[in-house]
Design a protein around this nucleic acid. Structure first.
Length: 269
DNA sequence: ATCTACTCCTGATTGC
DNA sequence: TGCAATCAGGAGTAGA
């Protein structure tokens, strides 16, 4: 599942399309999470790619006039290919065609999306997003001011993109384990000291994952097709019944807001 | 205002 | 063995 590190890896992986001119779009499947607006997209034909960046889990590809916003959803991947092949593989939904190469979006579960926008920062998917976890604005003071007024579990707060972005179900489990905090603990009972732990480990874990090229799970391949290999470092995610690496206690699994949650009840309070 | 459940979808896994 | 039911999950949305 693409979270911040996987999206960051994808952005780096498609850097080769920078300054290339869009020749045309090949659309195979309009019905992604939102229906693709083809006529809006086609205003980008003939324009050059000026900038590729990540905001939260979104990839924003900007031309002189207009941008594309891509979300990988649960199972989306981007890959680059030569123009010579013209066959859509299973679950290839659209292609952006350049002079010699093309960018292909593949997404079995179709939770991903593609939007055209003139101003990404004003777009409905982007404008309500919270702070970037790797920026200086995500710090102890900011987090404490957020959590102290909330009664939902800290896990839900960290996954809510309106407070802090980019953290999904895998990394939030890892962050809370590293911080020794129970995911069920409600925001208003999170102390300043705990905020400090969360901030430190969020940055550490995300940065390490980016360095390693994103977590490998069933779905994620970076654009060159190489697999990330952070999986080997996961301490609690998907380890229910197995011994905690710190205290040997069995890792527990349960749901918080319909999401799989993994915890060592001895280490996390 | 916050918070939770529901929803979209398909592939992998589980159960009979 | 095979088919059906269940589960996985990002994030917008509706309703509590």
């Amino acid at each position: 599942m693409p979270e911040l590190p996987e999206v960051e890896t994808s952005v780096k992986g498609i850097a080769r399309i920078q300054s290339k001119t869009i020749k045309r779009f090949n659309i195979n499947q309009l019905n992604l999470r939102w229906k693709i607006d083809v006529s809006a997209l086609e205003t980008l034909v003939g324009q050059r790619i000026l900038n590729i960046r990540r905001r939260a889990k979104y990839i924003i590809i900007s031309c002189g006039k207009g941008s594309m916003i891509i979300h990988l959803g649960m199972s989306g991947t981007l890959r680059l290919a030569k123009n010579t092949t013209n066959v859509f593989k299973t679950h290839d939904h659209f292609e952006i065609i350049f002079e010699k190469i093309k960018l292909i979006f593949n997404d079995p579960r179709r939770f991903g999306s593609l939007h055209f926008t003139l101003n990404p920062d004003d777009h409905f998917l982007i404008k309500h997003l919270g702070t970037e976890p790797l920026s200086n604005t995500f710090n102890n003071r900011y987090l404490f001011n957020v959590v102290k007024k909330l009664s939902s579990p800290i896990k839900s707060i960290l996954m809510n993109q309106r407070w802090v972005v980019g953290i999904g179900n895998i990394y939030v489990n890892e962050i809370l384990f590293a911080s020794k905090i129970n995911p069920r603990r409600r925001g208003k009972y999170i102390t300043k000291k705990m905020c400090k732990e969360i901030v430190i480990h969020t940055k550490k874990i995300l940065n390490r994952a980016i360095k390693k090229g994103g977590t490998t799970l069933k779905d994620f391949h970076n654009p060159s097709g190489d697999l990330g290999y952070f999986k080997i470092d996961l301490k609690v995610y998907n380890r229910q019944g197995e011994p905690c690496f710190v205290c040997k206690n069995k890792i527990d699994a349960f749901k918080i807001n319909q999401r799989s949650t993994f915890v060592c009840k001895k280490c996390q309070n």
